[in-house]
Nucleic acid binder design. Structure first.
Lengths: 210, 210
DNA sequence: AATAGATATGAGCATTCATTCAAGTATTTC
DNA sequence: GAAATACTTGAATGAATGCTCATATCTATT
């Protein structure tokens, strides 16, 4: 497990059998993470839990870090698909509706397995393992959503700035709603509140420079 | 480095010499993290870079994880002090001013060493290593700030909900502003924008239940 | 049926790493 | 200035880990 060199790449699974092996490996990591903690996630144990030989593991992953990277990628792509779907299904909706739909999609994606998401963020190293790509695509989604609805806004604000704020708001609040929501607050209420917060910002008149 | 058992506790530094040793150890971890990456952070290397013997390290830390925990604690306490100071210095200020001050303090704290903060969040495991405590104290600060200024708000909203939203907004946006701010956006502008977003939410009329 | 390519196996190697401990050196206390 | 306490040292240990490779089995293709 070296940080420095990019290890040589490996075979890409082409048969179904092989794809199952890869999936089994990623699933095994999750199971071990949840049941035994991060330190128990050794390559040998991964293979064991996946019901696969250690040799097979190294057919598809050049080193241990690559497994974590793949796990993050898989997770991120899942969320991304949800976002893109919401974006397409609401191409004709009002800003109001679209924001609600995006928030809904984000929360839904994070609610499927909050524990996993939490573990991935706090225990599994993920420097630039798709996280940056995801942030970019999320920004892209909101940029599109907002830019095409500029008419509905009391404008004047720079688009990049708006997108920056909205993206961070939605990401953090949805994540928080899925994992650390106060007990009084229902998921439905949380969704409403998050959308309301975003819309309040979008509609507010920009602050004047001091 | 075991996840399971809580390792037996160690000597607490009482002489200045010993406190310097502990500080040197934590500083060494940061240096290695930045220069050589997480995987290079071994106990032996920490001791070496700290200019301290490996034996001394184990006088004060029961195991490797404890070092990470201490590092997180030190960082979190720094941010916390900044927040508390802002809270006290603006005890008599308007909500507007106080929010600005809190945002300013948060950003300032994260701007001192953005790279470190980023590394701590993405590479160094930190499950429940002060992170939870920090979230609680941050919520406490905002709860106090908002509850004592309820008069300034177009109220009707549940306090816990408000605090939940505001805390996540400020934390994520300040963090983002310090580490991933788009190049067009100056720090000063970011501060204004974040404060504006928070105030827009606070002043907006609560959304109605569907 | 035969061939080639893809996939699977797992014992074992080289290395690394976290941690201990017995012995020494400062500092404080009385 | 002696006794007690706090601190430091670093070679050594042993368990664990990441990963390779020679061999075997499956699947697809012709």
């Amino acid at each position: 497990m070296t940080t420095t060199a990019t290890s040589r790449s490996r075979r890409r699974p082409v048969q179904t059998r092989a794809r199952q092996t890869v999936e089994a490996i990623l699933d095994a990591v999750i199971r071990i993470l949840k049941r035994e903690g991060f330190d128990a996630v050794t390559t040998n144990r991964i293979a064991e839990v996946a019901g696969v030989s250690i040799g097979s593991l190294y057919q598809y992953f050049p080193d241990k870090r690559a497994i974590f990277a793949a796990l993050h990628r898989r997770h991120v792509e899942e969320v991304d698909r949800a976002i893109q779907t919401a974006l397409i299904e609401n191409a004709a909706s009002s800003l109001d509706h679209l924001i609600r739909a995006l928030v809904d999609a984000m929360i839904h994606a994070h609610t499927r397995d909050p524990e996993l998401h939490e573990l991935l963020m706090t225990e599994v190293p993920h420097r630039a393992d798709g996280t940056v790509d995801f942030a970019m695509r999320l920004r892209g989604a909101f940029r599109l959503a907002i830019a095409t609805r500029a008419g509905e806004l009391s404008n004047g604000r720079d688009l990049d700035t708006t997108v920056f704020v909205v993206t961070h708001m939605v990401d953090a609040l949805c994540h928080g709603a899925a994992t650390r929501r106060p007990s009084h607050l229902s998921l439905a209420d949380a969704k409403r509140e998050i959308s309301a917060a975003v819309l309040a910002y979008l509609r507010a008149v920009p602050a004047q420079a001091a």
